[in-house]
Design a binder for these strands. Structure first.
Lengths: 227, 227
DNA sequence: GCTGAATTCAAACGGTCGTTTGAGGAGTGA
DNA sequence: TCACTCCTCAAACGACCGTTTGAATTCAGC
């Protein structure tokens, strides 16, 4: 474990986590990673068989870390009511996203994958299953009718996870045409708004909602509140 | 206008629209574009001064096309009530996204920019203003209190536009772990759900909503988020 | 038809990328 | 000490990238 060779291996993985989380898989180069790890470029191929293999290890480390470190206590989450669960879900993730720590990096890597999915990740998904999806399912099920179809369930999960992406790079808000100043206050405010919007949005899935607003051409549902 | 040189120029722009919309600015190579346009590689530098210049022309063509071709009739939109405006907004964009036509490509290009913003686009934004933002502002203002702060207004616009991104590449839903079959029926269903969720989410911004669900720890404010 | 400018072309340039090579160093067991 | 494996290293490889070059071709105006 503590052999010098393992040290190099670990250094490479740590450096890869930092680089891939910041620039994505395509954007991060092996030269940058090996330089950050004080290792030789050939080390990646020696230890991992190539850039893909290194990334695969990073993904494995990510799910492991999520299982161990995530402050998302699934049992506590399961006991919450829907709105509180959503809020906890969001606040945990937003906090992780904007901290410089390991968990934030892992979350960023997964979010990169939702933006531009790599073949490595696709293969990875085929063998392992991400706890993230389980957590998301737990949350959305609090809002969906028990007899919801599989398609709708996945749509809701997909949508919930995509809400996180919105804030993967909040610095976008700092540039034109938004020109907002990103500080902790704004992040908190963002979390408030996002959480409230998500609760309201997910509530539309309930079968007994007056929120189920349809367009004019669709089959008329009884409750058409208009604006 | 119809000189052979202009033909090459137009072919290059058309090919660039196709390539950049499919692969983004970074991912699309000049070799691929020139090959698709039956032009020489040097033509891009001759006519546009480089890849950046070509992309700039593509962006200009995009906003022009949006102004001319977009079925989003701003006046009609302005006359609608909030929910109907949201629904129209979504349905128009989702339809464009999933058609193979020019407008869908332009929309895709803009969405690429929200995922990975280029310097060209940043500079472009500094000089021109996108009608897209105006339309989004029109829609969200139907839900926001009249005295909404500039920050909140931009957050709402940012969020609304980001909802579109969710479906920029619906093929993601076809792969694990979702494994959904994307057909017209699903697209329609998606539009229904997304529209309903967005209406509900935007409605949380109103000061008179019971939807403004807060987490336990936050200052209990029944009304506007303030912060 | 002639002339000069506009345009096209094949080829090459310099750069970054991921990967491979083969020599050499470091550690271990006999 | 020896032999052996494990590991590191500088250098190079081949592929792709955007761009440049300079000659060849096409075009417009007279």
């Amino acid at each position: 474990m503590s052999r010098p060779a393992d040290l190099t291996r670990d250094n490479l993985i740590q450096a890869a986590i930092a680089v891939f989380s910041a620039k994505g898989f395509e954007g991060g180069s092996v030269r940058e990673i090996t330089h950050a790890a004080n290792a030789n470029q050939a080390a990646i191929n020696y230890h991992f068989g190539g850039k893909d293999g290194l990334y695969h290890e990073v993904l494995k480390a990510s799910v492991r870390a999520f299982a161990e470190l995530s402050p998302l206590d699934v049992d506590r989450l399961a006991a919450m009511k829907g709105p509180q669960a959503v809020d906890t879900f969001f606040r945990t993730q937003l906090k992780a996203l904007n901290r410089r720590d390991q968990l934030g990096r892992f979350l960023r890597i997964f979010t990169w994958e939702t933006l531009a999915r790599t073949q490595v990740f696709t293969d990875f998904l085929a063998t392992e299953n991400l706890p993230m999806f389980g957590v998301a399912e737990l949350v959305v099920r609090k809002f969906l009718p028990p007899d919801t179809e599989r398609t709708d369930l996945w749509i809701a999960i997909f949508w919930l996870l995509s809400q996180i992406e919105t804030f993967i790079r909040p610095e976008r808000l700092e540039r034109p045409p938004y020109n907002l100043k990103i500080d902790q206050k704004l992040i908190d405010h963002l979390a408030d708004r996002l959480s409230a919007m998500t609760v309201a949005a997910l509530s539309t899935w309930g079968s007994d909602r007056a929120w189920d607003q349809r367009r004019s051409g669709s089959p008329a549902s009884q409750a058409a509140p208009s604006s």
